[in-house]
Design a protein around this nucleic acid. Structure first.
Length: 505
RNA sequence: GGGCGUGUAGCUCAAUGGUAGAGCAGUGGCCUUUUAAGCCAUUGGUUGCGGGUUCGAUUCCCUCCACGCUCACCA
């Protein structure tokens, strides 16, 4: 049972008063002739034309401001398109009707209002109410103090800003913060743009299992669940990779999936336990082809979402013109640290070289892990402009083909924007014997109990034995891309319902 | 998990080891073109939970909870 606040009790009293008068606080039928935006535009088109018929409209929306002034009242209502002012006047509808609105309606209520559109003396397009109806009574006040409309722009004077309330009660956040709604419109546009771009190039959008008997395709701890009837443990996927590549065996040349991955890891400004990933696989392509496609794809998406090829992220201008900067991992590390990783074939050797650096690391880590640490520390934060970092150590890349003549290095790149790792791609292994050997290698480096150790996926190897075309694959964190496009500094801002700890009440 | 910080009215924020305040919202009143409308009056608090020190704690101390920043972790 809800524990009602004083403000809520007053509103509950108004609901009772309505019911006593035979007025439904939550009626079933609604009428609407225009959206608020449509009617404003229609009015502007005809208002200078003396011959034109006046516009009568029935509008709906949530009451966002009320200014009662004796025998007239002004209010703003907001629908999904915009706000519009409505005007109640005793001469038009009688004093009782004006008073009824003043007394029984509160900020946050939904109203249906009919009348003629006109422009007030102070110049605002307004509906002169001839009749109105309660559509939905709000019991809880919206967490907004007061808004003002200046030149059509909503100016907020103190509104909900407490992050915890904003995330836990996202509905309230969305209701009072229009900027937040824009973030999720941009997110939808981003997804649509990615789909358009790939669809136009012959990619097929597919859906693969989220519940998987064996997880793989990335190094991360999974969430475990259980199917009762089948008496089977299942994992929430940590990546789509192994399923998408099975489809290449099946004859689809280009596939992609946009969906949720789940990783049982820490939470940070760029990590959420469930996050959205886009992966694509392209037969008859290698990682250089994928680089070219990545540049074009991101340029297209940025243009679709922002209208240009540049954007400002956390105060820094980022330019998506192609081609991007390409940095070989080995050379990048030489430039940043003086260490040439090709001179250090083992973790021990590399550790010795890293001792002179001002950086903490686990001396027992593998060579590949140490190199990953180095790039995360010395390179990643400096890659503000879109940058490809390519040719990675083999031992942290079990699905990537080695470089010809260099068995320690694989054809893999990651790309970075705004100092964040955005995605990862490689020339994919399609040799089943090589792949099996790489899986076994991984098995030896990981403790059997280590959950990051992917169990060997025999079915994936069987698929590959049927013959897999050479291909390039790509994965990108969609949430991080949306962060860039909306200039937000944490992943929680681009997730409608970010993960928070459970809280009583 | 570690470190630092925050938690006061519906919202945004003050304040002090001695009865907890403002603006907006709310409530009552005046007001027929306002727009943060205005004017008058006024209600509203277990100061995150629990404990300790103290004559007295919202303030000082401790546990816990939540959130934020950060480090670690993280393909």
């Amino acid at each position: 049972m809800a524990n009602y606040s004083n403000l809520e009790k007053i509103r509950l009293g108004k609901i009772e008063a309505l019911q006593e008068e035979g007025i439904a606080p939550y009626p079933r039928r609604v009428e609407r002739t225009h959206t608020n935006l449509e009617v404003s535009q229609a009015f502007q088109e005809i208002e200078d034309n003396e011959e034109a018929a006046p516009i009568f409209a029935t509008l709906v929306g949530r009451v966002r401001s009320m200014r009662p002034m004796g025998k007239v009242t002004f209010a703003h209502i907001e629908d999904g398109t915009s706000r519009i002012q409505i005007f109640f006047r005793a001469n038009d509808i009688g004093e009782d009707q004006v008073k009824f609105f003043n007394d029984k309606f509160d900020l946050g209520d939904f109203i249906q209002a009919s009348g003629k559109i006109f422009r007030t003396r102070s110049g605002e397009i307004t509906l002169r109410v001839s009749s109105y109806l309660m559509l939905s009574k709000a019991v809880t006040p919206l967490p907004a103090a007061k808004d003002e409309v200046v030149d059509g722009e909503v100016v907020q004077h103190a509104t909900l800003s407490d992050p915890e309330t904003r995330y836990r009660q996202r509905y309230a956040d969305l209701a009072v913060n229009p900027d937040v709604r824009e973030i999720f419109r941009a997110r939808a546009k981003t997804i649509r743009a990615l789909q358009n771009f790939l669809d136009e190039r012959g990619f097929l959008e597919v859906e693969t299992p989220i519940l998987q008997p064996i997880y793989g395709g990335a190094a991360a701890r999974p969430f475990i669940t259980h199917h009762n009837q089948l008496k089977q443990d299942l994992y929430l996927r940590i990546s789509f990779e192994l399923y998408l590549k099975r489809l290449l065996v099946g004859g689809f040349e280009r596939v992609y999936e946009i969906g949720r991955d789940f990783r049982n890891e820490g939470v940070s400004f760029k990590h959420n336990p469930e996050f959205t990933q886009i992966e694509f696989y392209m037969a008859y392509a290698d990682y250089e082809d994928v680089m070219t496609l990545t540049e074009a794809m991101l340029a297209y998406v940025v243009e679709q979402v922002t209208g240009g090829r540049t954007l400002t992220y956390q105060g820094q201008e980022i330019n998506f013109e192609t081609p991007w900067k390409r940095v070989e991992l080995r050379q990048g590390l030489i430039d940043a640290t003086g260490i040439d990783i090709t001179q250090h074939a083992t973790g021990e050797s590399l550790t010795a070289a890293m001792d002179s650096l001002d950086m903490e690391f686990n001396p027992a880590a593998s060579r590949g892990k140490l190199i990953d640490d180095l790039l995360g520390h010395y390179l990643e934060p400096n890659f503000i402009q879109p940058t490809f970092l390519y040719d990675y150590p083999r031992d942290i890349s079990p699905l990537a083909k080695t470089k010809p003549g260099d068995p320690q290095t694989v054809e893999r790149f990651e790309f970075f924007i705004g100092g964040m790792e955005m995605g990862n791609a490689f020339t994919e292994i399609n040799d089943p014997l090589d792949q099996e050997e790489r899986f076994l290698e991984m098995g030896r480096t990981f403790d059997v109990e280590d959950e990051e150790h992917n169990p060997l996926d025999e079915d994936y190897l069987r698929a590959m034995r049927y013959g897999m075309p050479p291909n390039g694959g790509f994965g990108m964190g969609l949430d991080r891309l949306v962060m860039l496009l909306t200039d937000t500094s944490t992943i929680r801002e681009v997730l409608l319902f970010p993960h928070l700890r459970e809280r009583e009440g």
